[in-house]
Design a protein around this nucleic acid. Sequence first.
DNA 1: ATTATTATTGCAAATGATTTGCAATAAAGG
DNA 2: CCTTTATTGCAAATCATTTGCAATAATAAT
Lengths: 155, 155
Amino acid sequence: MGDLVQEAHVRLHAQGGRMTAQRRLLLTILESLREHPTAEELFLLAIKQDPSLNLSTVYRTLRWLEGENLVSARIFAEERRQERFDAALPSEHHHFMCTRCKNVIEFDSELFGSIKSQFQELNGASVATGSIVLYGLCSNCRKEDFDIDNYLGAK
Amino acid sequence: MGDLVQEAHVRLHAQGGRMTAQRRLLLTILESLREHPTAEELFLLAIKQDPSLNLSTVYRTLRWLEGENLVSARIFAEERRQERFDAALPSEHHHFMCTRCKNVIEFDSELFGSIKSQFQELNGASVATGSIVLYGLCSNCRKEDFDIDNYLGAK
DNA sequence: ATTATTATTGCAAATGATTTGCAATAAAGG
DNA sequence: CCTTTATTGCAAATCATTTGCAATAATAAT
């Protein structure tokens, strides 16, 4: 059993909550994914194993996890109004989304700290959190675009 | 008449569109604002001058502007699923949102370029766009929090 | 200026993601 | 095993945004 299931179990117990089959299933899937699924994508994966699972249970589970800081939700510019859920690593990290395949790549940046403190000093603000989002083509999709160009060029 | 109205006029003409009273009103308000209003906030400002204006006209106008790259839309983490519209400066810029008063401050960062190229090199991706979002307390709200603390402390 | 053309509007209804009320179900403690 | 009550599935509600359509009004043509 993975870390996330374990951790959730402990926290649920501490707050009088219950570890249900539905939660265990969702947590297991969630920690097996490198991707950042939408609620519906997670739901579609989960009903393969439990067809009676309901989408609202998925949302309720994700919101609970979010409140526990075990998952974070974000909306990417490419996909207005739809949230993606990230089984949050404890450390601060940033995201790149491929505008073609919608895959999300996480990355770190030592420069981010300087950006924050620079902003703080200039504005007298106190920055608590923040993140960087980049958009473009991942290496795979760059290749495919190149192949298509070649194909079209050859015709 | 401001730049935005002017520019929109030119583009509308070029594409067989029409400069209506509603558009002129919305554009005028938009370029007079330093803030990043939601569609509804813009609507509420606009109906003071034209009470018959409809919210869907506001959305249609904003979407057209977005398509023309005269306005950009973004969703801040603090406000799930609600878009804010930014009468986009031509240059790349970033945002800070105060989690208390919801005010948005724009800022530049020379370091952003390095972050992009660093990511590109590490991942073989090509980064087209991106942005930084910071959250925290603006200088005003820091003061107010301080005042409240003092007040509570003094009681 | 007047008229014809058709882009744009206001309105109401639709959409799509997410949330909520509620009765039925099932963990966990005793 | 029984009891308590957190959690579920379901259906209906919400909220921001979008869309179809008939009426209106900017522009082009006369």
